[in-house]
Design a protein around this nucleic acid. Structure first.
Length: 720
DNA sequence: GCTTTGGTGCTTTTT
DNA sequence: GCACCAAAGC
């Protein structure tokens, strides 16, 4: 094990890697060598004879992280990581449920349902229950069900409060569980919940895994939710050794159920845990790091860490004020072009923003200046419509009870099965308590449909049956998918589609064949049908970023959330404005602001060499002109670290552009950010202005917590 | 039964 | 200002 060079670690890293404490908490600041510590610790445990590859379980949050860790461990061990379990919570849960489907009370061929399937199912249930009240929205119901499962709560344990809204949610959730069980479908939350119940209901199984694993290691622990924590806690118990690595300052998924408090819970539940802080940063210059520290210091309830670096001061941060969002984008594109011309690789440049909607203007500027860029986090491969359709065919072939898939592709490509037919099948399925497929059989047998519809449906049923007999006879995954692509009529359909779109879809369908051919399962299977089932369900758990094709070297565009875990020499943070970042939706809530601040911290610490912050004095947002003030996060950075860039000479400001509103506001002796009093609403602060002239409206955040938009000419605001 | 028009409402995203 | 979803034409 030559690569395991412990002497190259700093003292804290060394302590963490070689700790013999049963439980270990590594608080690892940004850029402090977190992944290095984790992989080296696994290597060390094995080298020291404290663990064997077979007895180590490593958990991450993304497949990408799991792949990377696996690769790095294999490098360290200089051998394939055989027997070692590395995966995401969901991937591991899936693996367990596949292996122990009987104990988990699931059909052997159960499939994983992604959030799109889930939403469709929720919509179907809402329609089926004849709920028309618009207080019930499918998205919200979906969110509710997810949140319940993340907290380990099944429908029967949701409190029946007597409140109509709550009780309706409970009823939908109940029905949702029923249908999932009947169709053999498991959503993301369900994977975790079932895996947890698997431990609880099968002591002998739990004992088996407690015997097998000696060491459990978890990365990005700040992102863990309640059900994941519970699963882990039952497995580790008092017997196993647990190492967790995380950074409470980088917890940015609270809105999705992640609970930082679980780090504190760890210290309580696993008593005697050793804590190691990694505070030396090897990534950024001192200026960048100091800026990050200054910003995050405004949060409270932190576990506390002080990042420091040996590195030089480096260049000061730059702050650019564009007069509008186009100007902001142009500045960024210009600067990127300059960096690339000076020899910087585009791959070392990143442009980060709070929300995806911001990317368009930025992209336009990059295109204009011919800066090659790559945008992360669009629609992922397995979420593309055509791919999901192809997969739905395969799923239906494997399992006729899979209503979600049946619903999806019954009329794709269009084959004359319309809404009416659909509706009668749904009603029938519901009344009989059977699947859509069985309802179709029934309808055909009873001549319950109009002739045209019956013919179309008959053809569809035969198509699926025929696929079944043909496809199951093949033993190559690629050939199976090829067959379905061709005979479903999808290829033909998309070929006829006009424009670039159709061509891309056909390409994607072919790419799916390639992906299937290179698929290797870690799990056992007895037949090609089982292999196909494994491929499909793992596809649902896969963002498909492994196949991300390499284009020419490009600059990287992504949201702040997707940037976590990455680093670049040059980072641009665009849209540093109140209402945008921190986002409007989070401003009212102190917890929300703190999470936004952690997001700012993540953004700043992505930069190695230079960080540029930009904002726009005026911005078209939702169609109307808005004037946001500089983000509080920029104001939290000490002055000495930031250089303000003003390049007004290169871009001439349209004489009259966007000024009317400000003038109208200023004419009345007021300005944005000013404290004012209103006769009825009391005192508050002007946060924004829109419109112009007599139509000028001002946004005022009143001290009672309400925000109001008032017509300036009638509001009679008095400066305080 | 599929395609075009109008109304709404607006983070962040992995699995 | 655009994208997405639901109701009315071909």
């Amino acid at each position: 094990m030559n690569s395991l060079q412990l002497e190259k670690l700093n003292p804290q890293q060394h302590t963490a890697v070689t700790s013999e404490a049963q439980h270990l908490l590594v608080l690892a600041g940004a850029g402090s060598g977190k992944t290095r510590v984790l992989t080296h610790r696994i290597g060390w445990l094995i080298a020291a004879g404290l663990a064997s590859p077979y007895s180590v379980l490593a958990v991450t949050f993304t497949n990408k992280a799991a792949r990377e860790m696996k690769g790095r461990i294999e490098e360290l061990l200089e051998a394939p990581s055989q027997g070692l379990w590395i995966g995401t919570f969901h991937g591991l849960a899936h693996r367990l449920l596949k292996a122990h489907w009987q104990q988990a009370k699931l059909p052997q061929n159960f499939q994983v349902m992604d959030s799109d399937d889930q939403l469709r199912l929720v919509k179907r249930i809402i329609a089926e229950m004849n709920i028309t009240d618009d207080r019930i929205q499918a998205k919200q119901v979906q969110w509710f069900i997810g949140a319940q499962k993340d907290e380990g709560r099944r429908a029967q344990y949701v409190v029946a409060s007597g409140d109509w809204y709550q009780d309706t949610l409970k009823a939908i959730y109940t029905r949702y569980e029923e249908i999932c069980q009947q169709s053999g479908l498991v959503d993301f939350g369900e994977l975790l919940l079932r895996a947890h119940e698997l431990w609880l209901n099968n002591p002998e199984l739990l004992a088996h895994y407690k015997q097998r694993f000696t060491h459990v290691l978890v990365d990005e622990f700040q992102d863990i939710n309640d059900i994941q924590y519970a699963w882990l806690r039952v497995l580790v118990g008092n017997e196993l050794s647990l190492t967790i690595v995380g950074d409470d300052d980088q917890s940015i998924y609270g809105w999705r159920g992640a609970k930082v408090e679980n780090i504190q819970g760890f210290e309580l539940d696993f008593s005697g845990a050793q804590t190691v802080r990694l505070e030396q940063n090897y990534r950024s210059t001192a200026n960048i790091l100091n800026a990050a520290n200054a910003v995050i210091a405004n949060n409270n309830g932190r576990l506390g860490k002080d990042l420091w670096t040996d590195d030089d001061e480096g260049a000061p941060l730059r702050l650019y004020a564009g007069f509008n969002e186009q100007d902001e984008a142009r500045y960024i594109a210009d600067e990127m072009k300059r960096l690339i011309a000076a020899g910087t690789s585009p791959t070392e440049i990143a442009l980060l923003y709070r929300s995806n909607a911001q990317s368009r203007v930025l992209e336009e500027a990059l295109i204009h200046l011919q800066v090659p860029y790559r945008i992360y986090g669009g629609v992922r491969f397995y979420e593309r419509m055509e791919i999901r359709n192809a997969v739905a065919y395969l799923r239906l072939v494997l399992n006729r009870q899979d209503d979600a898939s049946m619903e999806r592709i019954m009329n794709v490509p269009p084959r004359g099965i319309g809404n009416k037919t659909f509706e009668s099948l749904r009603v029938m399925a519901r009344d009989q308590g059977c699947s859509l497929w069985q309802a179709a059989q029934l309808a055909l047998a009873n001549n319950a449909l109009a002739k045209r519809a019956a013919n179309a449906l008959q053809a569809f049923v035969e198509l699926i049956e025929q696929m079944d007999s043909k496809v199951m006879g093949l033993d190559d995954l690629g050939e199976m998918i090829d067959y379905v692509n061709k005979h479903s009529g999808m290829i033909e359909y998309h070929e006829k589609e006009k424009g670039e779109k159709g061509r891309a879809r056909v390409e994607n369908l072919n790419e799916l064949i390639t992906a299937a051919q290179s698929y290797n399962s870690e799990l056992d299977y007895d037949s090609s049908a089982e292999l196909l089932a494994l491929f499909i369900s793992e596809a649902s758990l896969d963002a498909g970023d492994a196949q991300a094709e390499e284009h020419e070297p490009s600059v990287n565009l992504m949201t702040l959330h997707s940037a976590k875990g990455l680093e670049f020499e040059y980072v641009f943070l665009a849209g540093m404005e109140e209402n945008l970042f921190p986002h409007k939706m989070s401003i009212a809530d102190p917890g929300g602001i703190q999470e936004e601040r952690r997001l700012a911290y993540v953004g700043i610490t992505r930069a190695r060499k230079e960080l540029t912050l930009t904002y726009a004095e005026s911005r078209r947002l939702y169609g109307s002109e808005t004037f946001n003030s500089l983000s509080r996060f920029v104001r939290e950075i000490p002055d000495g670290l930031v250089n303000e860039v003003r390049l007004r000479s290169t871009v001439s400001r349209p004489a009259n552009f966007g000024l009317q509103q400000q003038m109208a506001v200023e004419d009345s002796g007021l300005s944005i950010g000013q404290r004012v009093a209103h006769a009825m609403f009391g005192e508050g602060t002007i946060t924004n202005a829109e419109g112009g002239g007599a139509q000028t409206r001002v946004h005022v955040a009143f001290d009672d917590g309400t925000e109001r938009v008032l017509m300036l000419q009638y509001a009679n605001l008095q400066p305080v």
